[in-house]
Design a protein around this nucleic acid. Structure first.
Lengths: 349, 349
DNA sequence: TTGAAAGCGCTAACAC
DNA sequence: GTGTTAGCGCTTTCAA
């Protein structure tokens, strides 16, 4: 190794502190962790030396001897998506309050990455793993992935934001159907009955559940389901744009559009504008996720919010509790809330 | 501890592998790292046992005995901002390619957090720290912070995306002035001479440099600088909105607006629309950062891009090189590029 | 090529 | 209360 320079910053250890204080390392350890009582006099002396050097114990050594690292690994589908970044930051803050630190890895929709990231977190001996999005979004659990997670669960608790059959994970999930109920009641209450659904894939559980409830609600209100009003696709602006173009080409246009998320909604808005229609006068738009994008759009979007702070808190609470061996419900629900802004209005047709 | 259940998943160690293979732990270590030659026969046998159990060495133990952890800590101002999330993911990908993993901490604009996060990363023995945004954005370096970083630098290389006087850090920064030059040449080339600047704070270095170049360019083109055309504020939509409202209230309205970032630009667009003006027919809008927001807006925004992939790569290359003790230039520049979309057009006034 | 032994920095019995 | 000792799991001399 050619990094002689670096070794200049040779870090100070608990032994250095002990020596200068004229005590043993264990005593220093005790004041560091408050794990046992130390005579006030010594304690103060030791503490002052710790402060003097701004000594921080080596987390690796600590984690190696302890059974816990006070670290929670988070695998997110993609933090560039504001949904995940909002949730991640909420987790980071909640974790910090609980004395934990978090690690982040992005799977970017690549199955292999999810698996290798699980391995990496295992190597790092995180106390728990939170998986947000990715394979756990699948309506039909991928067998190989479930198998992998099962083996991980043997040593480390796993908490997911979706579903994962045949693996002993804890789940903290959004009540998607309830979210759709809120949206439908809102629109129907405004007088809409021609309601379209754009974006999303049915292989994704959250989308499927929304779709189911969408149909249920239409039926419950005696509204005929029009297959042409549902155009699936993906979760990006383009997808919302394309789907909306198709829908606006119908002879019998809907008066309201539900976008699978804020990104798709932005595309829908663009399409609507290009068709010379106004929102919400001619057509209402609602979306899911209530990321800051909803607030950026003109008009500002009515959207389903999940209270990211609470959601993150729940995720962390669960991770902490489970890793401490406590009993926690396998399934916890996050209740969505409808945030009404300027993109929805009464139906005049 | 009540987590008996967890200990069931007692992880397998290098000794277990060694025992089953009938060799010593050192030999297993050697095949694991390819650090020395092991007889083919043994090597294969050991490898197959490793594969069989999908054994992954404990990173804590490894980091403790090694001098490197192959981990890079990243402190970002706020990953919820797409600028940082794009950069972070680019870093993650680049790091992965180099055999490193990254950790992320958000300082959220809180000075104390930045400092405590530095300590945390130090404890975790990361090989290098990359600080993006936060105190390093300050035009005037905060003394206490510089002092802190200086002490960190003694043991761990620090790379920043901004400036930090009096601390031996490496810098990988955007050529802000060049970005502004591109913007100004573009607008002036389109015939604009009444150009406004909205959002941003002068205490932030990147903003200040942009402002300087803005003035230089006006002067160079013989355009009189109109103080009313510069309305500072912050970096969010509201700020862009408020600033633009002020500017559009002027008797002599500008024909082009430069927003400090995409968020501010979104607010500017809203204000312009509310004034019944069209973009780009009545007024052109350009912004900085070219986050995906630029693509979400209607019209899509002309914006300055930094090529996040390359930027992240440079950051990681620097971190890896410096932590290996290699000589690296103290200051590296990232060249911006103008991405022209639909929000800018010729000036007809 | 391979194994034994020491050590990385810290914690946790166990004695005193 | 406090020191001693023995690990935690891995790497790395040093011998053989």
């Amino acid at each position: 190794m050619e990094n002689d320079r670096l070794n200049a910053g040779k870090s100070i250890t608990i032994y250095d502190i002990a020596e200068e204080a004229g005590v043993s390392a264990s005593t220093v350890s005790r004041v560091l962790n408050g794990s046992a009582s130390v005579r006030k006099e010594k304690k103060d002396r030791i503490q002052s030396i710790i402060d003097k050097y701004n000594f921080k114990p080596n987390a690796l050594a600590k984690g190696l001897s302890d059974t816990a690292t006070k670290t929670i690994g988070i695998i997110a589908a993609d933090v560039r998506n504001p949904y995940y970044s909002a949730l991640f930051v909420a987790c980071e803050i909640a974790a910090e309050k609980a004395g934990y630190s978090v690690g982040l890895a992005n799977s970017l929709g690549v199955k292999e990455r999810e698996q290798s990231q699980l391995d990496l977190l295992l190597q790092q001996k995180v106390d728990a793993i939170i998986q947000m999005g990715g394979r756990v979004d699948d309506l039909i659990t991928d067998d190989a992935y479930a198998e992998k997670v099962r083996s991980v669960c043997a040593s480390t608790p796993v908490i997911v934001t979706g579903k994962l059959d045949k693996a002993p994970v804890h789940r903290v999930v959004i009540d998607e159907a309830e979210g759709m109920s809120l949206v439908m009641e809102h629109l129907i209450g405004l007088g809409h009955s021609k309601i379209a659904l754009v974006g999303g894939e049915m292989r994704v559980a959250s989308t499927f559940y929304k779709y189911q409830r969408y149909q249920e609600k239409l039926n419950a209100h005696g509204i005929k389901v029009n297959g042409e009003y549902v155009v699936n696709g993906s979760y990006d602006p383009e997808s919302g744009y394309d789907a909306t173009n198709k829908i606006l080409a119908l002879k019998d246009r809907p008066t309201a559009i539900i976008a699978i998320n804020d990104f798709a909604a932005s595309g829908a808005l663009r399409s609507i504008r290009e068709h010379g229609l106004r929102v919400p006068e001619d057509i209402s738009v609602v979306s899911f996720d209530n990321t800051y994008i909803a607030d950026l759009m003109s008009p500002k979007l009515t959207s389903i919010d999940y209270n990211y702070d609470k959601y993150g808190q729940k995720l962390i609470d669960t991770a902490v509790a489970v890793s401490a061996g406590k009993e926690v419900e396998d399934l916890q629900m996050v209740e969505p809330v409808l945030v009404i802004r300027d993109s929805t209005g009464a139906c005049y047709n």
